[in-house]
Design a protein around this nucleic acid. Structure first.
Lengths: 307, 307
DNA sequence: ATTGATCATAGGAAAATCTTATCGCGACCA
DNA sequence: TGGTCGCGATAAGATTTTCCTATGATCAAT
């Protein structure tokens, strides 16, 4: 049993429009017999006669009428399929699912989203904010297109590109502003406030201070940098935050900032995606937009950072 | 530039469902390379990647998702096209446009339509009532599927089949009931009421009476048999009507009926259609239904007719 | 009856599609 | 770390489909 083909439907449609095999064939850029044969095949496939052929004219049968209406809809839908592809090919369009870690999202996203919307207005950006581990797993599952996390990720199957580096700065209560900046080792003497487990930033802070391993949770771990800074403002301890968080987090708390001396702690934020992702070329473009957004933030906020 | 084919869409759809080239190919009853090639061709035609192939799984891209939704709609529509044909092929289904002359329509149609509706309930019957000349022209134009008219039509391009014969009976006022039945020649002495020009029945009546040609209109031509009979009842003249009209038309007028002697006038009613019409087989069936309807009418009304 | 127009059919050529065989890559296991 | 396995891509030849040219058949008009 042979199937209906789109070719047959196109020929059929041409014949309904021209009512003449020869002219319809011309319109399809084929010979008249080729069209005759395809129409005949179509009719045989269906088991129904579509056209009434008389010497003078070619006319649709009643069934042919109904058939033609539906066939036209189908051909239009197929053409739209092509249009859809043509659009998607040229501009960057469609859903883009980006995962971002919580110690970056609140500071970067406002600027980034604004830039994406202006640079690639066809994009439908979805944001997922959660910790690295979850992001990577969702990425590998195909539930995200890309993720912005701290490098390195070193997951086989994922490609990564660096976006920007940033240092961590010390946050102390306002009264301590003039005290000397402690060394990493000195940090161990102080009450260091940390994020909950699972945040890569927690691990990086711990690592900087050369703590042996993850500290036993003392029940004071914060769920966000915002919380940590508020606690510092209340005199409970000290903490580290990445430069990018400074403008947002230190605006409303009585805290003082200080850079570390010597080898400053810091991190590299990068973008990762599946090596197999067909979006790779577009993602490289997106990465560039992220770099510009980060650069813009850094420039805007230079005056707020300690020297 | 090669076009999208339904085959490609079907393979594509299978691949979206199975997420595995080999199994999708099995489902399509083709080899895995054949499917690979068709998917590749489809992607190249579109200029967009539809699937992300990794070692572990085959996943739709974001665009592929949208594409799949539309593709499914298209495949469904094409399948429906096949269903439509399958239905139309078996049963008698769809629009059937029947033309009927005015001297038959009012008497035959009630019974005929009832029979058609029970015998072929899938039919969507449209009736057009007008004079032979117009019916033939509309039939040739393809605006009617068939017509019920008086034979012969002798139009090249039309096929015809007889349905039934009927005699014409004389209609006189009730007072004339016992007068002798005139011969055709005797009719010329009487005031004969006729239908307007264009009705075949007028021509047949005129012909029976051996009038030289069409009479000059005297302004009294009736537009329907009903009118003529009412005029006869009012004592204005006499007229002829076909047997089939007797039960309806003589019920409410003070008239008497009489058969002619010797060679009775009459007509053959038949069905005509374009020789090229693909409906021919169905129309032969319809003709049989008409014959049964006519027979039923004749039986029902036998007692009303003059002997 | 001949001619012109039109659609159908036939036969061989060209194009597409399919199958089998094989490659290449990445994952998984020892 | 190297072998093996699963899976998709690629290649080459066979098969099927589609097409074109030429010709046949039909019907209307001259």
């Amino acid at each position: 049993m042979i199937n209906i083909t789109l070719k047959q439907l196109r020929y059929f449609e041409a014949l309904t429009r021209h009512g003449h095999f020869g002219r319809a064939a011309d319109a399809c850029a084929i010979s008249q017999p080729a069209l005759s044969v395809q129409i005949k095949d179509l009719e045989e496939n269906l088991g129904v006669v579509l056209f009434e052929r008389s010497a003078r004219q070619v006319r649709l049968t009643g069934f042919g009428q109904d058939f033609a209406d539906r066939a036209r809809d189908i051909l239009r839908a197929v053409d739209e399929l092509g249009d859809l592809a043509r659009l998607a090919k040229d501009r960057m369009v469609g859903r883009l699912r980006i995962g971002v870690i919580p110690t970056v999202a609140p500071y970067l996203l406002p600027t980034l989203i604004q830039r994406l919307n202006t640079a690639h207005s066809g994009l439908d950006v979805h944001i997922r904010e959660t910790m690295t581990q979850k992001l990577i797993s969702e990425l590998l599952d195909g539930r995200l297109d890309t993720a912005i996390v701290a490098l390195p990720v070193s997951e086989p199957g994922l490609a990564e590109t660096a976006l920007f580096d940033e240092k961590f700065v010390l946050v102390r209560s306002a009264q301590e502003a003039s005290a000397p900046v402690p060394s990493p080792e000195g940090m161990r003497e102080m009450k260091l406030l940390l994020l909950e487990e699972g945040h890569c930033f927690r691990d990086q802070a711990v690592s900087f201070c050369n703590f042996r391993s993850t500290l036993p949770s003392d029940g004071l771990d914060g769920s966000s940098l915002s919380t940590l800074v508020q606690m510092v403002g209340a005199g409970i301890g000290v903490t580290l935050i990445p430069e990018m968080a400074v403008p947002v987090e230190t605006r409303s708390a009585p805290v003082s900032l200080a850079r570390f001396e010597g080898e400053e702690p810091g991190r590299t934020i990068g973008m990762v995606w599946r090596k197999t992702s067909p979006l790779a070329p577009q993602l490289m473009e997106i990465a560039e937009v992220v770099r510009l957004a980060a650069e813009q933030l850094r420039t805007q906020n230079k005056h707020l950072l300690p020297s």
